[in-house]
């Protein structure tokens, strides 16, 4: 549904180069540290910046040529941008009614009420959590086919985050061919929600894998020097020197479990995989 072909964007001290695809029916996650290029990727997808190379397509159409009707099908949450803080929820409802043909005002106000968002207060006076919830409610207030969410759960406590993830799962359940592109720092959120993950570092995609493969087949090996010498390095992706010897990342943990009884092979959590892919030595 969303395709980034050979995207290139150059800044004076940073450059982005990536290929990414979000398929209908999928929740795709983008994970990386601050400054890795997540927000730049999103801005490219939303035609907010000019590209130095490549293109982004939404349903086969270049995003530079999307009409108003096309844009109505995309719901967006940006981490550092939103409606003016001087507006109230009531104002926003009135504005959205004029912008989206299928905006349901009663439903929107009801949902805001349920989330305890005051309707007459200026949103600059909202707490971080309230602002985040409002942004998501706005993105979900009209019928969309794609959600592009940049750090939608930032600033939310665990309960609120779970609620948002639940809302996103319901969103996907309602229509089979919807899709979500979501970025986050919080790996556990992505682990439980996303179907596939892109890891970005320094403007490049370092890993793209289905979540279930990451959780089932990736593993972290902890070996002392002797054990490490004997290891077949074929399926090792990264290694990192530790006090005890070597920490290694593999994408075939069963191979090592079967052939090296006694070797410590742990399930790879997303956080660990990121740390190893980015911080570990390539093999």
């Amino acid at each position: 549904m969303l395709k980034m072909n050979q995207l290139r964007k150059n800044y004076p001290d940073f450059s982005l180069e990536c290929n990414m695809e979000v398929h209908p029916g999928c929740i795709t996650g983008l994970i990386g540290k601050n400054g890795a290029g997540k927000t730049t990727t999103f801005k490219a997808a939303l035609d907010l910046i000019h590209l130095d190379g490549g293109s982004v397509e939404f349903d086969g159409k270049n995003v530079k040529h999307l009409t108003g009707k096309d844009k109505e099908k995309i719901g967006v949450v940006l981490s550092d941008s939103g409606f003016s803080g001087y507006l109230t929820v009531k104002d926003i409802a009135v504005i959205l009614k004029r912008m989206y043909s299928d905006f349901d005002k009663e439903k929107f106000m009801a949902r805001c009420n349920r989330q305890q968002l005051p309707s007459d207060k200026k949103i600059k006076e909202f707490s971080t959590g309230m602002k985040a919830k409002l942004k998501i409610l706005i993105a979900l207030s009209h019928d969309t086919r794609l959600l592009i969410l940049d750090e939608p759960t930032a600033g939310l406590d665990v309960m609120a985050r779970e609620e948002i993830l639940g809302v996103l799962r319901e969103y996907m359940e309602e229509k089979e061919d919807r899709a979500i592109l979501i970025s986050s720092h919080i790996a556990t959120d992505l682990e439980n929600l996303c179907d596939d993950l892109y890891m970005i570092d320094n403007g490049r995609i370092v890993l793209h894998e289905e979540t279930n493969v990451l959780l089932d087949e990736y593993g972290v090996i902890k070996a002392d020097d002797t054990q490490y010498e004997k290891l077949d390095k074929k399926y090792l992706l990264r290694r990192k020197r530790e006090e005890f010897g070597w920490r290694c990342l593999t994408d075939h943990k069963c191979f090592y479990q079967e052939n090296y009884p006694g070797l410590i092979v742990e399930k790879g959590s997303i956080d660990e995989v990121i740390m190893m892919m980015i911080g570990g030595e390539r093999l």
Binding site: K43, K69, K71, G82
Partner: peptide, 21 residues
């Protein structure tokens, strides 16, 4: 200046409005 504040333009152009509109 309201539109500009807090990076407002980013979100504004994600709404179904074109630059010329």
């Amino acid at each position: 200046s309201y539109d500009e504040s807090d990076n407002g333009y980013g979100f504004l152009f994600c709404l179904p409005v074109s630059r010329s509109q």
